[in-house]
């Protein structure tokens, strides 16, 4: 009986040890595999409703939305495909498909992104965060209105592209974040290929904040039924 127990324990200890040692590698392999699966999945075959499409785009797992925390500031960049922009435009109106399609056509020339800067666990106005003097507030307002658009750009290969459209939206004391709507001319970059959007943060001095979009990430979207 004792011999049985010793042999049994020996086998189990060996197996447990082997599993423990290789557990990390197996887990890493599984992670890599699951990431590859996400990358390779083709969404263009899927047919969804407009509402489902908007929800799909907002889902972080679908990689259209990127987020980066640097110390106390969170930077979020979300790609807004034309149907999302049309949906936002027509939100208050009664749903009408031809109208929706027409609205979509307004947005096909450019790639729209929503860029949000937020104080993590903060309150009050973003531009007043860690303010050192009243003059600095004025500087920040001026910067976000006129200078900031020069510090956000798209890099593809050796080409650098500034946004064709830039709008900084202030919501004052309502919440500790601000949103920038930016758009890049589709004729000036290849949407199918990999690119990086870079923001050189001079507002909170966090330096270069980069968001990378891989090949076909912007075009691998589900289809809206009827469109």
């Amino acid at each position: 009986m004792i011999r049985q127990f010793i042999i049994g324990s020996f086998f189990t200890i060996v197996i447990t040890a082997v599993v423990s040692c290789h557990g990390k590698e197996i887990k890493e392999q599984l992670n890599e595999q699951s990431e590859e699966t996400v990358e390779l999945k083709n969404y263009t075959e899927e047919k969804v409703t407009v509402q489902e499409f908007v929800t799909w785009c907002a889902d972080k797992n679908n990689k259209l939305n990127k987020s980066k925390d640097i110390a106390d500031i969170r930077f979020d960049l979300s790609y807004r495909p034309a149907p999302c922009m049309a949906y936002l435009e027509l939100r208050t109106e009664t749903y009408d498909f031809p109208k929706f399609q027409e609205a979509c056509n307004h947005y096909y020339d450019m790639s729209y992104f929503n860029f949000r800067l937020e104080v993590i666990d903060g309150t009050g106005e973003l531009l007043k965060y860690k303010l050192q003097s009243p003059a600095q507030y004025e500087e920040r307002v001026k910067y976000t209105s006129f200078e900031m658009q020069k510090d956000i750009y798209l890099v593809q290969g050796n080409d650098t592209l500034l946004p064709g459209l830039f709008h900084f939206e202030r919501i004052f004391e309502v919440a500790p974040y601000s949103t920038v709507m930016l758009a890049f001319d589709n004729k000036k970059f290849n949407k199918d290929s990999e690119f990086t959007i870079i923001y050189n943060d001079k507002l909170f001095e966090k330096g270069f904040v980069k968001f990378n979009y891989k090949n076909k990430q912007l075009i691998n979207l589900p289809n809206i039924s009827g469109l």
Binding site: F5, I7, G8, S9, F11, T12, I13, I15, T16
Partner: peptide
Amino acid sequence: ILISGLIS
């Protein structure tokens, strides 16, 4: 083996 494995 099973019991000792489980315990381990």
